[in-house]
Each structure stands twice: as C-alpha cells, then as structure tokens.
C-alpha cells in the first residue's frame, strides 16, 4: 500500500529516515506546492538509487555534463558517434574510449543524486506518495547512496536555508554595488554563478527577477546574494518602487540613455 501525505506534515528528513530504517524499496514521488516542480526518487533496500526531477531522469551523459565530468560538446559527439540505447552501454563506451573511468561515472551519478535530494530538502510543502517495490527502468545506471549522511547533510542545509531566509527575507528588492573605497577587491574571486547575478545588478531588477531569469531557485539565489553581501560587493536596496511594481518574469531592460548622460561620461573620460 502506498504511503501518502504532505511535506508540511512529514518532512523529507522524516520520510528518508523511515525508508532508511525500514530498508524500504520503492518510488517516492513529490510535487512542490510552491513551484509545481516534481521529483521521483527510487530506493532499494533503504538506499537511494535514482532521482528524476521534473518528470525526467537524465541520461548518463547529461548527468556527467551537469557534474562537470564531460563538456556539452563531448556529450553531443558521443551521442552522434554511438548507437547505444541504454546508459549501461553508454557508460561502457565512455570507459572503453578512455573518456571516463568507472570511478568517475559512479562518483558523478552519486553527486547528481545528492544534489537532487538536497534541492528537494528546500521544499517546504507538497504532496508525496511512496509506492513500494516500484523500481526504475533497467536501462539506467543506478548507484546506491546510503541515507544516513544524506539526512544529516540535508537537515544541515535546511538550517542554512532558514538562516539565509532570516538574512535575506525579501527577494522583491533590487541590489546595488557597494560603495566602499577601502574594500580590497584584489583577492576577491567569484564563481560563474555569482558573476551571472552581478551582471544583472541595477536598481530596476529585483533579486527575484534575476533568479527567475537565470533559472536559479530561491535557495541558490539567497546563497549567492548573501555571499556577495558578505564579501562587501553588494548591498540590498530597500526600494518601495521595486516592491510596488508589477513582478515581471525577466529583468527589466535599462531605459534609453539620454545625450546629457553620454556627454558627462565623455567629459570624465577625457579628463582621466
């Protein structure tokens, strides 16, 4: 018989704990109430063996690209060259061609599984259903991940999430570059994700709009902005204008710049 409920009442850590302690085999389907995203996790004898987000279990090459073991070009080339159907054959091909070794594949799949579950840990509500004895299709590679560490790390991330929400409660505010002349930027090193956010900073774009445009979830955008704030690079602007403006799905393009502004820039550059 299926186990059903809502994450509001039974948290993911409790569900995983149940599956772990009872050595359950089956599929756990969850739908995030807020974003309508869905996930399906497969377990075998109390261990996580596969994860599919948004109705799709990615192919092995997609996973390897996501975890940085393959470039998109390599993945494309492998699919173009080979006629294999199953991930197991694909894995064999990657190993035989010396592109990856067995350890790379196992670790890559494992990392993907962990990240998928950590993402679900941030879901606060949503219906779930656990169907016992349901296993993933045979053609996919499964890697068994023990749940004890995953539960501990997931719980830690939930606490981090709560902390980030306290630090950055409102996402409907814009960011601005910090004005701190004493700040030594020489040693500051940013990730690609942080740069993506930085490139959208202006008084017209709220944090939520930036996240939506870059397809970053709330946890990630809070983490990135908090990191930039802590490094002293950005400040959060309390903006009544942004708060009252209708929420666009993408950042608002800058307004056309007038001639007087260009002239000011020209005058300044001439005097450099």
């Amino acid at each position: 018989m299926a186990i059903k409920g809502n994450l509001r009442d039974v948290g993911l850590n409790q569900l995983l704990n149940l599956i772990y302690l009872a050595h359950k085999t089956g599929a756990l389907a969850i739908e995030n109430e807020a974003s309508r995203a869905d996930a399906r996790l497969y377990f075998k004898e109390g261990k996580l063996i596969q994860a599919a987000l948004d109705g799709k279990a990615p192919r092995l090459t997609e996973i390897m690209v996501r975890v940085g073991k393959l470039t998109p070009e390599q993945a494309k080339a492998i699919h173009a060259r080979s006629r294999v159907d199953t991930d197991k054959e694909l894995g064999l091909l990657l190993i035989q061609n010396g592109i990856l070794n067995q350890q790379d594949i196992i670790q890559g799949v494992k990392n993907y599984l962990l990240e998928a579950v950590y993402q679900i840990f941030t879901w606060r509500s949503g219906n779930f259903r656990f169907d016992p004895n349901l296993l993933p299709p045979d053609e996919r590679i499964t890697v068994a991940v023990t749940l004890d560490h995953l539960i501990i790390e997931g719980t830690r991330r939930v606490q981090e999430w709560e902390h980030l929400k306290d630090e950055l409660p409102d996402l409907d505010v814009p960011l601005k570059f910090a004005e701190r002349p004493d700040l030594n930027l020489r040693n500051v090193s940013l990730s690609v994700e942080q740069w993506k956010v930085v490139s959208f900073i202006n008084s017209r774009n709220t944090i939520r709009q930036i996240a939506s445009f870059l397809k970053i979830d709330e946890f990630q955008i809070r983490r990135i902005v908090y990191g930039l704030q802590t490094a002293g690079l950005v400040d959060v602007l309390p903006s009544p204008v942004a708060a009252s403006a209708p929420r666009a799905t993408a950042p608002v393009p800058s307004a056309p710049v007038g001639r007087s502004l260009i002239t000011r820039v020209i005058d300044r550059l001439r005097s450099l």
Binding site: P256, V257, G258, R259, S260, I262, T263, V265, I266, L269, R270, L272
Partner: peptide
Amino acid sequence: VKNILLELLYVILETAPEE
C-alpha cells in the same frame, strides 16, 4: 584605451535620443 572608449561614446552619442 581611453581613445577607444571615447570613440565608442561618440558612436553612442550619434544614436542617443534627443532629450
């Protein structure tokens, strides 16, 4: 570099709307 940026600004100025 200043010269390049100024040249770009002149091109921008040509296309900037009248205020």
